[in-house]
Amino acid sequence: MSEVKKLRVRLTFPQELIKEPVLFRMAKKYDVMPNIRRARVTDTFGEMILELEGTETNLQQGINSLREQGVVVELIEGDIIE
């Protein structure tokens, strides 16, 4: 069993994905636990600030699958390299 890690991310959903349960599906498929802290959803845009908990591999695969579906996944602290 590899170590469980936590990752704080911001997800930005394009319009066509707002009504889809993309996060839920990803969480189930890759055994990643999402812990939602903040969300803003309008008709044209959705943003979610959350913590994802899972093994390194599962987190990576889960994030990759979100990205493949068109969700923008970023560290919530923004880019750290100045």
Binding site: R8, R37, R38, I49, L50, E51, I76, E77
Partner: peptide, 10 residues
């Protein structure tokens, strides 16, 4: 510290 424990705001 730099982020809020509750909502992850700065």
């Amino acid at each position: 510290i730099y982020v809020c424990e509750f909502c992850f705001g700065p």
